[in-house]
Design a protein around this nucleic acid. Structure first.
Length: 200
DNA sequence: CCTGCGATTTGCT
DNA sequence: GCAAATCGCAGGC
């Protein structure tokens, strides 16, 4: 627990692919509940799979604002998905948080999901992450530097994680880009890495 | 104005 | 392995 720092706004004001890679191994907490980030995806402004690629709408306006804010959106009529806004203000981009290795408040996560969920399944998907941490549209646009929602720098065994890149999940456009990043060998991912196309 | 579908998860036809 | 659940938006009529 020593030496962990809250990631500053400047961390997010960079290329979105770099941020997506650098977030692997960092810790995400909401009200002290969360874990280590083991899977992310990058979405950039000139990327057909990005919600902001066709201009600003009521839903995606947070992505056009300053970096380090939460972009939460509601999907399939029932799931919330948590993204963190990247690049300088006016350059829409975001990193989707897809999976965590739960470390803090596991019982609180279980109570929001299912009584006897195995740790490997608690946060193994973007909808599950939001559900387990209690994140919804009330977090839309909130900064992540202090207060309730917090990202902490890498600590302990996570200082230099091995990271693999694969195509992103569940999209129909932009599938050639390998902008999904996973902690190699983690048991907490949304799907197995056995899927082809994983590169370092 | 109305219709189709998506950065998903769950429980079973 | 597939269908249901059901919000916001884009595109077509």
């Amino acid at each position: 627990m020593t030496g962990s720092l809250v990631l500053p706004e400047s961390f997010y004001a960079r290329d979105v692919v770099e941020v997506a890679r650098d977030l692997i191994g960092c810790k995400l907490l909401n009200e002290g509940v969360g874990g280590v980030i083991v899977e992310t995806e990058a979405y950039d402004s000139d990327d057909p799979a990005c919600h902001a690629s066709r201009g600003m709408t009521g839903r995606n306006r947070a992505m056009f604002g300053p970096p380090g804010r939460a972009y939460v959106y509601f999907s399939y009529g029932m799931h919330h998905l948590l993204n963190i806004v990247c690049r300088p203000e006016g350059c829409p981009a975001a990193v989707l948080i897809r999976a965590l290795e739960p470390t803090d408040g596991i019982e609180a996560m279980r109570s929001r999901r299912k009584p006897a969920t195995a740790p490997e399944q608690l946060c193994s998907g973007p909808g599950k992450v939001a559900r387990a941490l209690g994140i919804d549209l009330s977090h839309y646009g909130l900064p992540v530097f202090d207060g309730h929602l917090t990202f902490l720098s890498r600590q302990d065994d996570w200082h230099n994680p091995e990271i693999l890149a694969t195509p992103r999940i569940g999209i129909s456009a932009g599938t050639r880009r390998k902008w999904r990043y996973c902690a190699a060998g983690s048991r907490f991912l949304s799907r197995s890495l056995a899927a082809k196309g994983a590169v370092k």
